[in-house]
């Protein structure tokens, strides 16, 4: 475990905490895409199929449980909580899951490290995570008023992905035979998708004005 990896995981954890804070304290999920949250629940379910079969470390298992538990509870809150669900902007959040999931599944069946069920699901989770933010970015662009917590949530998600790239570089340099093209390439694509958002986030931060994406 290197410092980049630990910071990445903690940033990921913080993003989830920020989102849950918004849901719990303000009882609002305004500006949050349920489609993206559902895709994340699918991503973690497919990736962590090894949770009961392969023990890596106590840290690893705990974090997997946290990401599974929180992703499903966020979806539950947005769909079923009687107050939170009222703030969900269904008409703006129109992205279709299938358009993202189907190509990712086909790609996972074609390009993987090993053709086994668990391995294909693991690969699929990386391809899907790379594009899972798209419904959220589309919703963000449609939302005129982006509140601070939503902006911070997406910023932390993007930062987590960028830190993972540093972790991969560090591991590639320090560990022999550490080469993993599938997480690298999908991670790179995922991080690039945040580029535009980062640009406007820093601009609003620098000029001390409310974050707003151009239409």
């Amino acid at each position: 475990m290197n410092i980049f990896r630990l910071t990445a995981d903690m940033t990921h954890l913080m993003s989830v905490i920020v989102l849950l804070l918004k849901i719990h304290t303000i009882k609002s999920c305004a500006g949050i895409s349920l489609k993206t949250q559902e895709l994340y629940a699918i991503v973690f379910t497919c990736r962590y199929l090894d949770i009961f079969t392969d023990f890596i470390s106590f840290y690893n298992t705990i974090m997997k449980v946290i990401f599974l538990w929180t992703s499903f509870s966020i979806v539950w809150y947005m769909r079923y909580h009687k107050i939170v669900r009222r703030s969900y902007d269904k008409d703006q959040d129109t992205f279709r899951h299938v358009f993202l999931m189907l190509p990712c599944l086909v790609l996972a069946l074609l390009i993987n490290e090993r053709f086994t069920f668990k391995e294909v699901m693991w690969t699929f989770s990386f391809y899907l995570e790379a594009v899972a933010i798209l419904p959220q970015l589309v919703l963000l662009q449609r939302t005129r008023n982006i509140d601070n917590l939503t902006g911070q949530y997406i910023f932390l998600l993007g930062a987590y992905r960028a830190l993972y790239i540093l972790n991969w570089i560090y591991r590639y340099v320090t560990e022999p035979n550490y080469v993993h093209w599938i997480p690298w390439m999908s991670g790179l694509v995922q991080t690039l998708l945040y580029g535009d958002f980062f640009y406007y986030y820093f601009l609003s931060w620098k000029n001390n004005v409310k974050l707003q994406l151009p239409a």
Partner: peptide
């Protein structure tokens, strides 16, 4: 194995 080492990431 080098294969397993990618799965130690979250």
């Amino acid at each position: 194995t080098s294969h397993g080492s990618s799965h130690d990431e979250l």
